[in-house]
Write a protein that binds this DNA or RNA. Sequence first.
DNA 1: GCGGCTCAAACGTGATCACAAAATACGGCG
DNA 2: CGCCGTATTTTGTGATCACGTTTGAGCCGC
Lengths: 256, 256
Amino acid sequence: MVWKGEITREKKGPVTAAKAPLRIVTSGAPKTDAGGRSAAVHETVYERLRWAIMSGQLEPGRALSVRSLAAEFGVSAMPAREAIRQLAALGALEFTPTRRVAVAQMTPEKLSELSDARLALEPALAARALTALDGDANAREKLAAKLLDIDETLDKSIKQGDSAAYARLNSEFHFTLYEAADAPVYLGLVESLWLQTGPFMRVVIGRLGTAALEDDQHKEVVEALRAGDAKKLETAIRDDIKQGMTNIARGYSAEE
Amino acid sequence: MVWKGEITREKKGPVTAAKAPLRIVTSGAPKTDAGGRSAAVHETVYERLRWAIMSGQLEPGRALSVRSLAAEFGVSAMPAREAIRQLAALGALEFTPTRRVAVAQMTPEKLSELSDARLALEPALAARALTALDGDANAREKLAAKLLDIDETLDKSIKQGDSAAYARLNSEFHFTLYEAADAPVYLGLVESLWLQTGPFMRVVIGRLGTAALEDDQHKEVVEALRAGDAKKLETAIRDDIKQGMTNIARGYSAEE
DNA sequence: GCGGCTCAAACGTGATCACAAAATACGGCG
DNA sequence: CGCCGTATTTTGTGATCACGTTTGAGCCGC
């Protein structure tokens, strides 16, 4: 475990949760700075906060503030504001009626919506990746090897109960595949969905443990990719999503 | 026509377009301020800019700047920055390599993606609206009447060649239906897609005229809603999207 | 007349300040 | 012992400033 026990049930208010010091870890985050240009400060803040949300480091309802976030990252208020606003636009953060900002809450309805939307988009996006790589069996094999590599590390982290590593590798697995589709519009939509499911993940893993996440469909995904079988690939992604979202639903209902 | 001739072909650079004074009209925009709380300045700026983009007032490639937008709306730089950043997060605006911001460009690939994504989400969202209203035939009838009313005004504006009114009413028609679904996640995704197609619309109407937009599927949509026929509703929405996106594609290819 | 260069204007970005509203902590009252 | 009203702190928000970079127009040389 890596959570350092910080997952222990906290008194959860209706909107804003406890007031812990916001400890955000970005060490294990995948590097995203690809441009030759040095990244702007607000971009790194955005990326770090984004990663913290997607990897489930911030539980739903966790209150954020411009100043505390700025202090956490050692920057001024401005970049923190911009990062918060961007993530709010993507649905990862919500505004309370008094304009305060918090990690989006989970509700059964939202869970259902997220699940449906993911099922509507991600299998199609995966199939698009296959199409993009269709002619090039070599590229397909290379991608498959990359995915397999990620999946092996992922399995290891599940066995070790390292939920932080799990969150990182699982998203890395999916987005490595999705990025191959070269479909920025789809990718943006899916990223938004992952940002909204991320905080739920934290709750699930905290309650159910990583053992519940063992039987994903990643092997089938790689197989279908190797075979160039779009139908099978879609099915595998679909099943993987169903599996994951069912786990979240289980973890959620366990809360009540 | 309402465009006051401002649609005349301008020298279109690779990224930033002409440097006209940014005339943004928000008079016809649907009012969105529902909360009892007085709206923050940055929210109204966001809404107005959002509306300008969705209704196609800003052609793709149009350069924006924080200062010019602030001047246009008579506010300071801060609210303009926040609005720009939110819309960039939703894919409506793009950053140039030198961090300058512009209305997103259109490409054939993007058009195809937007079309596919809309087809994947909007029929499902419409069906969800039907489900949400399923038990209440009275509510269905009320919504149908509302939609019919919008559609009538819409037809009128088509005949008058008022493309600004068309853009407003068309989005109003769809989102009135979609909002009935009470599905915020889906709605957010679809809004993002409309924000990305909006600027394309401007080009289309400018080239093809409103006559090309005449045969939409709105009547069929209302019929299906009245009948409570989900399958038919999905088909109608699907056909309407196909129709619209085909028009955009035509308008786009006419540009080359 | 035309291309390249220079320089002033405009821009993005981060920092800081002021103000009103909201949240939290606290102390007194029931 | 619990509740409520007050005072302090924190917060969102908008405005403004400074600095280094980019842009684009004008000018010079060819």
